[in-house]
Design a protein around this nucleic acid. Structure first.
Lengths: 118, 118
DNA sequence: TAGCGTTATTCTTTTAAAGGAATAACGATG
DNA sequence: CATCGTTATTCCTTTAAAAGAATAACGCTA
C-alpha cells in the first residue's frame, strides 16, 4: 500500500477562568450553571438540564457563593414548591463579566489562528 | 467571634494549546518536554528532570511526532551510549511558535486583569 | 400535621487517569 | 559476543475524580 499523505488541520484553542485566592471561581461550566439556575429557578433542575449530578451543582454554587464578595445565588430550602434558587444582581454581573471576557479571548484566538504557522 | 471580612484577590487565568484534528498537539507540558529533550539529548533524562514517568514522556513525544507534518524529535534506540533523542528543526520551530503564542496570551490576560471588575 | 419538592449532606460505588514495575529490543563498542 | 544505557511496550497497582444512592432538613400549603 502506498504511503498516503494526510492533510492536518491545526487550530489554537484556549480556556479562560477567574480565580479567587488562586482557587477556581468562575469558568465556562460554572457560568453555564448560573444561567441554568436563572432559567429554571432551581439547582436540581439546572443540574438535570446539564446532565450533572445535583451534588456537583450544589458544590459549584457553594464554591462560587463563598468566593464572591456577595452571593451569586440565593437558595431556599423548603417553602413554596419545596424551595428553589435564583440569581442575584451580583450573579448577573458575574455571568456577563465572564462571557464578555471569553468572547474577547475567542477573538484573540481567531486572530492568532489566522497567521498560525503549523 | 466577630465576623471578619476577607480581602479577596481575583485574577484571570488562561491556558492555550494547539490541536491537530481536534486532538492535543502542543501545550505547555509538551513544549517543556521538548526543551528538556533538547537539553539532555535523551527522553529518559528529560522525563526524570520533569519528574515524569518515562512512559508518559515517550507517549507525549510519540503523539507529537505523529501529528506534526515532520517529526519534532528524532529517536535512536541502541548504539552509542544506548541511543538518545534530539530535536529537529521542526521541533525548534514548534517550541518557539508555541512560546510566542503563550507569551502573547499572557499579555492579553495581563491587560484584561487590569480592568477586571470583581 | 401530613405532603410536597426543593436544598443539604453523607456514604458507598464506579470509573478513569496516573504511576510503577518489569522486560524486550536496539545497536555501537570493547 | 557480552555490556551498556537508551528506546519501546506491556501489565498491574495505585490514586483521584466522578457518579450514584440514600436520607435528613426545610418551610409553605392544604
Amino acid at each position: 500500500m502506498a504511503k498516503t499523505s494526510k492533510k492536518q488541520t491545526y487550530r489554537i484553542r484556549g480556556r479562560i477562568w477567574i480565580e479567587s485566592n488562586n482557587e477556581a471561581f468562575l469558568g465556562s461550566g460554572r457560568v453555564e450553571l448560573l444561567e441554568k439556575v436563572k432559567e429554571y429557578g432551581s439547582i436540581s433542575k439546572a443540574a438535570k438540564a446539564m446532565k450533572m449530578s445535583y451534588r456537583q451543582a450544589w458544590e459549584l454554587i457553594d464554591s462560587m457563593n463563598s468566593k464572591a464578595k456577595n452571593p451569586l445565588v440565593i437558595k431556599q430550602s423548603g417553602g413554596k414548591n419545596g424551595g428553589g434558587a435564583s440569581i442575584t444582581e451580583a450573579g448577573e454581573e458575574a455571568i456577563s463579566t465572564f462571557k464578555n471576557l471569553r468572547e474577547e479571548m475567542f477573538q484573540f484566538l481567531e486572530m492568532k489562528n489566522k497567521n498560525l504557522k503549523v
